[in-house]
Design a binder for these strands. Structure first.
Length: 122
DNA sequence: AGCCTTTGACCAGCG
DNA sequence: TCGCTGGTCAAAGGC
C-alpha cells in the first residue's frame, strides 16, 4: 500500500471528467454512475480497510489500452461513489453506445448497481 | 453460445 | 523476517 497520489497516478474526480452521468433509481435513493463510453472489465473487488470503503477494479477490455478505473463507495452509503481513472485510452470511446443506447445503458447501470452493491463481501 | 461478473488465492511492497 | 494491506489473476458460474 502506498500513497494514492503518485507522480504517474492521475486521480480525477468524477466531476472533472468529461463523461456522461446517468442517474438511476436504486433502492430508496438515487445513484449517479458515470458512463464514459468505454467498455470495462471488472477484474476484482476488495474492501479497503484504510478508508473503510469497497473498491471495484475495472480494466479497459482493449489489449492496447491499459486504462484502469477504480470505483469506491462506503458499504453503508452506496449512494456516494468515488471514481478514479488511471492511465489513458489508446483508442476512441464507443460513441455509438452513448447516443443510441443511452436508455439501455441506464437499465444496464441499474442492473450493474444492483450487482455491485449487492455483493459486498469482506 | 457468448460475454461478463464473481470470488478466492497469490504476489509484491512496506513497516 | 514476518505480517498486513492492496492489487491482480484465473477459473467457475450466471445472465
Amino acid at each position: 500500500m502506498e500513497s494514492m497520489a503518485s507522480s504517474e497516478t492521475t486521480i480525477i474526480d468524477e466531476e472533472q471528467v468529461q463523461e456522461q452521468n446517468i442517474v438511476v433509481a436504486f433502492g430508496n435513493g438515487l445513484v449517479v454512475i458515470s458512463e464514459d463510453g468505454y467498455k470495462w472489465k471488472k477484474y476484482g473487488q476488495k474492501y479497503i480497510r484504510s478508508i473503510q470503503k469497497n473498491r471495484s477494479y475495472f480494466k479497459c477490455v482493449n489489449n492496447n489500452c491499459k486504462a484502469r478505473k477504480k470505483v469506491e463507495w462506503q458499504p453503508n452509503d452506496p449512494n456516494n461513489i468515488d471514481i478514479a481513472y488511471k492511465g489513458d485510452h489508446n483508442h476512441r470511446a464507443l460513441v455509438g453506445r452513448l447516443e443510441n443506447e443511452e436508455a439501455g445503458i441506464a437499465a444496464n447501470q441499474y442492473d450493474l448497481a444492483t450487482q455491485m452493491f449487492g455483493s459486498t463481501r469482506a
